[in-house]
Simulated assay, not measured.
Amino acid sequence: MHGFAGPLGLKAGATPPRGTLDELDLALVNALQMAPRAPWAQLARPLGVDAATLSRRWSRLRDSGEAWVTCYAAPSQVTYGALALVEVSCVPQAREALAEQLARHPQAMSVELVAGSCDLLLTVAAATMSLMSGYVLALGRIETVIATRTHLVQRVHRDASEWRMDSLSRDQRRDLAETEDGGARTAVATLTPEDRVLLLALTEDGRRSVTSIAAELGRPESTVRRSLHSLLQGGRAVLRCDAAHLYAGWRSSATLWMAVPPAQLLAAGDELSRLRSTRMAASVSAEANLLSVVWLHALDDLARYEVQAAARITSVRVLNRAVNLRWVKRMGRLLGDDGRSTGCVPVDPWHPIA
């Protein structure tokens, strides 16, 4: 059995001071990254505490906005349509108001205030190229928007749902691997309208009970349970556990746009995916044909990351950097200044353009 006493000497059942996550909190988030819907009883033995303690801890983290589990369409469902990072330049005094406005768009997966060649950076998902085109054109018609630049994703080498906090021992990770919501995956198919209804029902709380979902949708629990299993095991939707990054010790993040020779693009994307700080890596259709979203403990870690990338990919050139000033929205979650969740605007790639 594994016991926890946090860096401040906290016991497993104690509540950490505001503004930090203790070791058990971080281990719990790490465990839910591996097995987002696992029952507390299954997580109790690897984490070394009882199920009731885990349930209480998670309730506190969820209710305070310090951690959450969300659900969204798998990258395979939108790259057939369009997934893109969109740089937005705007009237300086309108930055915050515009960011809040764009965060309410269901097509905007994430909205960041950034330092770099643009003011805002959006991650946008649309089910079809036509919807993506319409969304970008609509952005340009907003009065305070000066310019946009769109980077269409060709391939996701690493999705942020695959990133893990390093808060568990090797033995704990091995124990949890048996619990992980994985196993044999069926062939990926296209999301059906029924799938999308179920996906949206899970967006705000990916651990929501089958009973609750069935009551909302007016369907038998057995039907919802089978549909949910098919949705997740079929690879059509992704569950992701996230945390308020500042509370978890990740003080900075950045998006790097890089260029490599086309013949090396696939291998370079895979190499970036292996770097510890890489949250997301993707090939894009632009002069900068490779991008990486990086989470850092401190801003000066960015230079070390670039050195690591260059050591692995000798031909890589960094063409641009967007350093995060503040997350306004991340994968559907509205975030406060301290990174805690304050609400949810579900990501809906099928939403019509307003």
Rank of each mutant, 00 (worst) to 15 (best):
A160R: 05
A160D: 11
A160G: 01
S161T: 09
E162H: 07
E162M: 00
W163E: 00
W163N: 08
W163M: 03
R164Y: 02
M165F: 12
M165C: 01
M165Y: 06
M165I: 09
S167D: 04
S167L: 00
S167T: 01
S169P: 14
S169G: 15
S169Y: 14
R170A: 03
R170M: 08
R170Y: 06
D171C: 13
D171L: 13
Q172P: 06
Q172F: 00
Q172D: 06
R173P: 00
R174C: 01
R174Q: 10
D175P: 02
L176T: 08
L176E: 05
A177K: 08
E178R: 11
E180G: 10
D181H: 12
D181E: 14
G182H: 14
G182A: 15
G183R: 11
A184E: 15
A184S: 11
A184F: 13
R185V: 10
T186G: 14
T186K: 09
T186A: 09
V188M: 06
V188C: 07
A189D: 05
A189R: 13
A189I: 05
A189V: 03
T190E: 07
T190H: 05
L191E: 03
L191Q: 02
L191K: 00
L191H: 05
L191I: 03
T192Q: 11
P193K: 07
P193D: 04
P193R: 06
P193E: 03
E194N: 00
E194I: 02
E194G: 06
D195W: 07
D195M: 10
D195S: 08
R196Q: 15
R196G: 03
R196D: 04
V197T: 12
V197F: 10
V197K: 08
L198R: 11
L198N: 11
L198Y: 13
L198P: 07
L199S: 12
L200E: 14
A201P: 01
A201M: 13
L202N: 04
D205F: 11
R207A: 14
R208M: 02
R208E: 02
V210K: 05
V210R: 10
T211V: 13
T211M: 08
S212V: 03
I213R: 00
I213C: 00
I213H: 01
I213D: 04
A214F: 00
A214S: 06
A215S: 05
E216V: 06
E216P: 08
E216Y: 05
L217F: 08
L217P: 05
G218R: 12
G218I: 10
R219H: 07
P220H: 03
E221R: 07
E221Q: 01
S222H: 15
T223I: 02
T223R: 06
V224N: 05
R226W: 11
S227R: 10
L228V: 02
H229W: 03
S230P: 01
